[in-house]
Amino acid sequence: MTFIQCNHRSGKASETIQIKGSDTMVNLVQAWVEAFKLVDPSIDIEVSGGGSGVGIAALERGAVDIATASRNIKENEAKAVTENTGKEPVEFIVAFDALALYVNKNNPVDSITISDLARIYGDDLRAHHWKELAITIPNVKTDKIIRISRQSSSGTYEFFREKVLNKKDFSLGSCDMNGSKEVVELVGSTKTAIGYSGMGYATHEIKMLKLMKKTGDTAYAPTVENTISKKYPLARSLQMYTLGKPEGTIKKFLDWVLSEDGQRLVADNGFVPVKSHTAALDTTDTSR
């Protein structure tokens, strides 16, 4: 591919953009890159995963043009980028995602509080059975809660641990699946199970729960609107970081990502598009 492009441009080498980071976003970024090839075949883009932290670490060394991250850059990381490269990291929110809680469709529960989730997954006041949370599951011998979780190196696991368990450890004994799809399938076949995954994985066998911050609060479903407004407690933004204000090909790519065409792919990949397509590059800020 590269070879052909070089020939087209006859002499002038095509420009390459390096993108690295979030595993959650890697499929989405790949889809963007493939579609962008049709828009401007002269720009070569290389994408790799590794995790949000890996992408930001590469940005600190100036080894990549764009770092993708399913979390915000930390203060010390932003400082390291500026110190090492002389340029400030600039943040672009390119999509939103919501972490949905799934239960089997036989489970009568519709909404749950964050503190009850912490009792299910954490060690404090650990709830072993659904009846401890005043929930009765019909037609089961035992209502033991089967906790489905993710492998410990997953970014989704870390996000859940931070937002629900306050960075404390998960209680041992949860079934740790290696992918979002496995979580959803196991919840679908297990009557007393609960699991968490991205919002795009819903099937007919399972039910997405509404979440409340605490008892008595309004419960919000993981919908597009509630994710954008961040009313849903486990909503997160997905971002890209560049070294300084992007110029040339990088700006062209980012502009396209935030355009209507680029944002349509966000929805196709099961994420939530950023609200306004007209969000120009200079309206974003680095202060977050």
Binding site: S152, K167, D169
Partner: peptide
Amino acid sequence: SIEWYPTSAVD
């Protein structure tokens, strides 16, 4: 020990 927490944020 049965405690396998290879990526714990606290311990």
